[in-house]
């Protein structure tokens, strides 16, 4: 059953077309990788699926609901798009606690588990601004998975991570898939794409050019 469906989605910003007639159907419980050069439209596509930008034309249906019509963003989604957007003067735990307070559906214990899962210490007294780049990225991943979303959207999730961190992210993606989650990743790292993706999509100039046959 398709969990995400894009029907003829285009997005224009000024005169430039950043998404060009995208048609896409993604099934539940699979990992989809999107690759392509910088500016090819991967992040824009992820923003559109996350409800952050409104398509100029076309429809995006997530879990049976049309975005910007039935709802303004998908109900169960975990997202990393570009650099981690936390609050500098709070600890990692407090940052996640603030974000979790919005939906109010997980406990402090769940937050600690998510932080432990990415190899950080939930009791670390350091403020976010003191974190290294790798730690910031790990916290971003904890943020995305902590509420056990049905859809996980990860734009360059292995950015700034060391080898251990990269292995950890790959492990988390596999675990999320095993849990039944649908994972969308954009990565420049070919190994990520080859190792993780059930299905690969290439993007160029806002177009979804071709798609591979199922890899796994």
């Amino acid at each position: 059953m398709s969990i995400i469906q894009l029907i003829n989605v285009s997005k224009n910003i000024g005169k430039s077309v950043v998404l060009n007639h995208i048609n896409l159907e993604l099934d539940e419980g699979r990992v989809y990788a999107f690759y392509g050069s910088n500016g090819s439209g991967k992040s824009m596509l992820f923003r559109a699926i996350s409800g952050l930008i409104k398509p100029s034309t076309g429809e995006i249906i997530v879990q049976g609901k049309t975005l910007h019509k039935d709802c303004s963003f998908p109900e169960s989604i975990g997202v990393i798009i570009e650099s981690p957007g936390f609050w500098d003067s709070y600890t990692g735990f407090d940052n996640l606690k603030m974000l979790a307070s919005i939906k109010n559906k997980i406990t402090a214990e769940d937050i600690c588990k998510a932080i432990n899962r990415v190899g950080l210490n939930p009791n670390d007294p350091r403020k976010f601004k003191k974190y290294s780049l790798g730690m910031k990225q790990r916290l971003a991943i904890a943020q995305a998975v902590m509420e056990k979303p049905d859809i996980l959207i990860l734009d360059e999730p292995t950015n700034a991570l060391d080898e251990d961190g990269i292995d950890l992210v790959r492990q988390i993606i596999r675990e999320e898939k095993a849990r039944g989650g649908t994972v969308l990743i954009a990565s420049h790292n070919k190994e990520d794409v080859e190792l993780l993706a059930d299905h690969k999509f290439r993007m160029k100039n806002g177009q979804l050019l071709n798609e591979s046959e199922d890899a796994k």
């Binding site: 570009e82 609050w87 974000l99 939906k103």
Partner: peptide, 12 residues
């Protein structure tokens, strides 16, 4: 620019 992605994928 900094926080919108994390906030507005959780609340409308």
């Amino acid at each position: 620019d900094r926080h919108a992605v994390y906030l507005f994928t959780r609340t409308a």
